[in-house]
Design a protein around this nucleic acid. Structure first.
Lengths: 151, 151
DNA sequence: TATTGTTATACTCTATAACTATA
DNA sequence: TATAGTTATAGAGTATAACAATA
């Protein structure tokens, strides 16, 4: 079967990539305004509670060895700190500093402002779009389970 | 205003990233099956007619210097060729070889199969999702001007 | 032995700047 | 002068493998 056999799938893929690209661009711009590289900003935005390094690697869908460098960067900026975990001394918890709390709130506020502008024209259809996208996520088998879940 | 003031925007952003992530994963997997790195696969999938290098850089939203390496890779694999443009001898057109045509069709078929599976559960709502996403793209101001610049 | 985090290393992708050949 | 493509180089981002400390 040719690629032209299912035009609606091509349209959906193209549109999802476009919307995601604008969201990512807005997030990266917000991060740059705060002087943060994208990977550090992504970790900061999702760090709401003390979390072991190993779990951060799952959130970011990357190897644990890379988390070391990302956390190093956030620690150098004074936004997070490593804290020992007495019950298992191999483990280190990453926690937000007070400045990290402020930076995280600022980053989330700025990136959300961009996202709000992107979806503004939908008005009352926003719930509708959410439900359809949720159906896609729920209805399709997860390729792997690594997807920055909660906030 | 706090980040919790607009939960629907957070939900929409999260869901768009999840769906886009699965699409991208499916595309990259299809590319890997053909032995193509993501950037080369992206160019191959979008090359339907002879195109100047400069325009490919606009398509890929990257600097022209990077297109050189990507086209080098595709040329090494025999999938594309550079063709001189007599009317302006500075310009090179990138064209698909016969093997490139086959590879492109195969890549598009495989990635589309993954996308079709992802959206399958929507059934008749696919048109609905498409219209809502199209409204987002049409209703939001383009973040950068990467839209048919000149010529 | 297995696991957490780290280090060292390499590869991909991308941006900047300088270069060439044309215009 | 300006433009198309190239080259050289540097910087993120990520993967693999080996290591120390701890379990």
């Amino acid at each position: 079967m040719s690629a032209e056999a299912d035009p609606i799938t091509d349209e959906l893929s193209e549109l999802v990539f476009q919307v995601a690209g604008r969201l990512r661009g807005g997030f990266n711009a917000a991060a740059a305004e705060l002087g943060l590289p994208p990977a550090q900003a992504l970790l900061l935005a999702n760090l709401s509670a003390p979390t072991p390094m190993r779990e951060l690697a799952v959130w970011l869908s990357c190897e644990p060895s890379n988390v070391t460098g990302i956390v190093d960067g956030l620690e150098r900026r004074g936004l997070v700190a490593r804290r020992p975990y007495p019950a298992d001394r191999r483990v280190k918890y990453v926690v937000l500093t007070e400045e990290g709390e402020r930076g995280r709130a600022e980053l989330r506020a700025r990136s959300q402002a961009q996202a709000r502008a992107l979806f503004a024209s939908l008005d009352a259809d926003k719930e509708h779009l959410r439900d359809l996208l949720a159906a896609v996520v729920a209805g399709a088998p997860a390729p792997d389970e690594a997807q920055i879940p909660r906030r």
